[in-house]
Design a protein around this nucleic acid. Structure first.
Lengths: 201, 201
DNA sequence: CGGTATTGCGCAATGG
DNA sequence: CCCATTGCGCAATACC
């Protein structure tokens, strides 16, 4: 089901491929700062970097607190873009984000030696594009699986540590008690036979 | 940037709203079982359940091991379906998944009292649809933020527990040593003054 | 029945 | 170039 396609930030489309097209859109969402939160070791989260400018409306993480609201509608008129589904919400802002000189339609340039900045203008219909996407999708699934496993392991580790902690705490209690007892015994003997006093401290 | 739109699993477009649109449709939501997975506490992960049949090619998690490969191209001829972008990879299989009687084109039925299964035929262009999407997007961001925080907390907890564990282990070592010493002392005294033996055991 | 919360997914940007 | 990560929106579903 889901095929998201109309997001074409860098990729542009060819003008005559299918019946209804249009354009697309994108969505810039700025991602201003992010949180940062550096704490302890690990720090796996690492979310702070993200992309650099998405969501057109603007993702306003008001102040420092969450405000999942913004992002709002795409600046553009939206909707009318592609063929059937989705009106999307994002649009192509790539031209604004790309370095100057990057905006070129994929019409005719030689496929190999294009301009420097523009990656190369990849057509969404190209086999190459699909291959890239497919490979990335695979990588994404793999990466997420890994992340899920990692999280699960961390949770299990926490549980085990907690259990072990309790065991240790209990054992400590026993040892302490035993020590107490022995000390008592020693003290008692000491008072009974002061003659045998050793500098045992 | 990203607007994913061409994924129209359930939603279709109306034939005359915008230049290229269609209509939409429905979604049955079977709710098969759900999962349950009860494990220790937390257990936030919960991945195992997922949806019930997505990706047309078939998501084959071969055997039990990962095989991020499959999913493959959509069963259909693909590409040609929508307008421009993406050839997608997923397609609408909803009709196969819907309960019998659910497959109806959004052609003419009354908008309010449709069949039971079909929610109501929601247009992707409708304001209502956009509102729903926007609300869901907010919920998604919120949920992910929460998940991130949760994961972070779990990691920190694990680290703290590990540290505490080490402290406890060390303290235990000291106590054990001390006990050992006391026991030695006692034994020595015992052998030195057998007359003072008490049933200390 | 209506909503929000979760989750898997693909996309695109970006980091190695 | 590649793959790995990550934020994002979408849709299906779970949960109230």
């Amino acid at each position: 089901m889901a095929d998201s396609s109309e997001r074409s930030p860098v990729i542009q489309e060819w003008p005559g491929s299918y019946p209804g097209q249009g354009l697309n859109s994108t969505d810039p969402s700025m991602h201003v700062s992010a949180s940062s939160m550096a704490q302890m070791e690990m720090m796996l989260g690492c979310q702070a970097q993200g992309s650099v400018l998405r969501g057109c409306g603007g993702e306003e993480r008001v102040g420092g607190q969450l405000a999942y609201l913004s992002y709002m509608q795409p600046c553009t008129g939206n909707a009318a873009s592609s063929d059937q589904h989705h009106i999307s919400t994002q649009q192509d802002f790539s031209s604004f984000l790309l370095p100057p000189g990057a905006c070129r339609l994929p019409s005719g340039g030689p496929p190999g030696a294009c301009l420097p900045v523009t990656k190369r203008t990849i057509s969404k219909n190209s086999v190459e594009y699909r291959l890239r996407r497919e490979r990335n999708n695979i990588a994404v699934r793999k990466s997420r699986d890994k992340a899920r496993r990692r999280i699960l392991l961390t949770q299990q580790r926490a549980v085990q540590l907690q259990e072990e902690n309790q065991r240790l705490q209990m054992r400590m209690g026993q040892l302490t008690q035993e020590l107490e007892t022995l000390r008592h015994v020693l003290a008692q003997r000491h008072s009974m036979q002061p003659d045998a006093g050793e500098p045992r401290c």
